[in-house]
Computed example of a mutant assay.
Amino acid sequence: MRIRATVAAVTGALALSAFAVPAAQADDSGSAYRADVAKVRAAHAKSALGSRADAPYDMDVTFSNFKIAKSFKVGALERVSTTVTYTMTHAADVDIEAEDFTTVPYLYKGSYTAPDNMLFGNLPATCAATSATTADCKGKIDVYPSEGELINADAGSWKGAALALAQNGQDPLAEDYDITKVGYADQGGLGSTLVQRNAKLTVDAAPEPVKKGKTITITGKLTRANWETNKYSGLPSGQSVVLQFRQAGTTAYTNVKGIKTTTGGALKTTVKADVDGYYRFTYAGITSTAPVSAAGDFVDVQ
């Protein structure tokens, strides 16, 4: 089962569990590469501390032009994927077309050398050579909140990185596997994105129908994904939300008033009804929580 990527005591070492995905969630071709990368990554990290000699060599590969969405929201249960593109530059003797060459983008929370958490894709990136020493690559980050990959404190800014692994004909499962013949490259600080908790917002205007000039009460609730319980729960009191109105027959909403959430994300306010139209609440979001707007609730004014 995929679980939160607990970082080992050695700098940059990643627990093997960060790559272990159930067959029901990932292509079979993806499971092997994650285990291979984890093994080589851990050996490379330990060698950096001088704790072992049997480690991969530093491969002449660098990464640039890392592009990812400015933000993406993750719900309480459902898998979420976001696409990453980047440029890979390599020495002429690095065979990126080899079957056992792998490159992959990933995200990390905290410092690059000792991250608090990391997110990878189910499959390696695909690359197309643009010259003898450069290639354009495209991969995905796959997130499974129901598998414990995230805790609520992980919401916010994450940084982008990419790595490359060349087995050079070595079989990771063979008894004579020689990791010193394996090439490895890893580079952080390539970009950034916000990993946000998905939000939900409801609205209900009553009574309806209503006589013109009479007061209607509009209630709602603002909740967000809790990655630790895999449910939605109310945000802390005092979140700023705007009540908007769209007159029937028009397409644009206009602001009516701003209000604050109370306990459990509850919302309640009143307005006088003048014409038929739709009322909704809208929330601009914060660093940890994605913006959201409720579907409009129609009020028939008679």
Score class of each variant (00 low, 15 high):
139 G>C: 07
189 G>F: 08
155 A>C: 08
19 F>G: 14
277 G>Y: 00
161 A>S: 12
74 V>I: 13
85 T>S: 15
142 D>A: 14
176 D>E: 11
35 A>M: 11
174 A>C: 06
185 A>P: 00
121 G>F: 03
252 A>Y: 02
206 A>H: 11
283 Y>S: 02
282 T>Q: 01
122 N>E: 11
236 P>A: 15
277 G>H: 01
294 A>G: 05
220 G>S: 06
39 K>E: 07
247 Q>R: 14
110 G>S: 08
222 L>K: 00
3 I>A: 14
171 D>L: 07
65 N>A: 15
28 D>A: 15
98 A>Y: 01
1 M>R: 09
7 V>W: 00
31 S>L: 13
18 A>D: 04
301 V>G: 04
245 F>E: 00
59 M>K: 05
147 E>F: 12
146 S>N: 13
180 T>D: 07
78 E>L: 15
1 M>H: 05
70 K>H: 10
193 T>H: 04
201 L>S: 01
104 V>A: 13
15 A>M: 06
194 L>N: 10
288 S>F: 01
39 K>A: 15
266 A>L: 12
81 S>W: 01
255 N>I: 04
246 R>I: 02
85 T>Q: 10
99 E>W: 08
102 T>M: 11
255 N>K: 13
120 F>K: 03
26 A>R: 03
51 S>I: 14
89 T>A: 15
158 W>Q: 05
218 I>M: 03
146 S>I: 11
256 V>H: 01
109 K>F: 08
283 Y>C: 02
15 A>F: 02
57 Y>I: 08
174 A>W: 02
274 D>M: 13
21 V>N: 07
115 P>F: 05
129 A>M: 12
185 A>L: 11
178 D>Q: 10
280 R>I: 00
176 D>V: 05
175 E>T: 08
229 T>K: 15
195 V>D: 04
183 G>T: 05
112 Y>N: 09
62 T>K: 15
199 A>I: 03
243 L>F: 02
215 T>S: 15
218 I>W: 00
145 P>R: 10
11 T>F: 04
270 T>E: 11
241 V>P: 00
